[in-house]
Design a protein around this nucleic acid. Sequence first.
DNA 1: TATTGTTATACTCTATAACTATA
DNA 2: TATAGTTATAGAGTATAACAATA
Lengths: 157, 157
Amino acid sequence: MDDKEAHAAPGAPDVSAKDALDAQIGYNLRRASTLALSDFAVELADAALRPVTYGMLALIDEQPGIRAAELCRQLGMKSANMAPLLADLEERGLVERDDHADDKRVRVLTLTPAARKAMPGWRQQVRRHEDRFLQRLTAKERATLLRLLRLIWTDED
Amino acid sequence: MDDKEAHAAPGAPDVSAKDALDAQIGYNLRRASTLALSDFAVELADAALRPVTYGMLALIDEQPGIRAAELCRQLGMKSANMAPLLADLEERGLVERDDHADDKRVRVLTLTPAARKAMPGWRQQVRRHEDRFLQRLTAKERATLLRLLRLIWTDED
DNA sequence: TATTGTTATACTCTATAACTATA
DNA sequence: TATAGTTATAGAGTATAACAATA
């Protein structure tokens, strides 16, 4: 006998091991994500970048000239939440919002030269952050984890 | 040539595949966790339970008589954030906060009979929710994911 | 009519500080 | 002094509704 019920607290109901809170993947996803989030905030504190704003910069860097609506789509954000963040990044001299040539509704996004110059350093900091909170996982386990997480939230594969 | 740079957008900088946003585990953790969170909210909408409040109820159910401070510790919450949630659950007739026999500072937590009766149904709803957002993962993959997530945020193992 | 982007607003979750009561 | 619990408050992140400009 080595299952949950054998070690249950006195007075605890018969909760099958599968139904226990710490056996739920959603719960463990949330705990792991929260830890990663706070570690990210510490590592990128000097750059004043949060996961969301870093994600915006990284994608604009990877796809210069991307439209705001497309950035929202790729990041799973609402444009209502994106707008003030973009305004802030523009104020900080990191992002440029230009008018689209053909469609006057569209805002086209690029990094400023300053942001382009800083980006490699920030990517390195993120690499350090990932190596830290994933230190107990081997390279192979990290690849597996990446694949499984993508199976959860993306439509591809 | 099948790596990131071969398919890079025109004008995009040389971002190694490892540094791309969608190769970051932290980013994918956040996306997967957000999806699970919103799916949870839909499934448990009728019970008016969110992941945090469900977690509190589940642990009190599994460890009747647990102290509030211990519940905070196990869930990684601040007592300042726990207090109003416990007050709300008590108001809704789901949780009882009793004085500890020896230590007058301590509040001892149990589920009300109503909550104990409802709990199996809620656990079943959570099981449905997990089966839904994890539908593309096999049982073996789910077990692997659980193990890897625990490696990230727990000290055990 | 539909799309792009913006503002205003509300809710959840987390964080810190200050406080009371008790050990 | 330290711990348990509470209140107040602020900051992220996400959600909806309403709107203007353009397609």
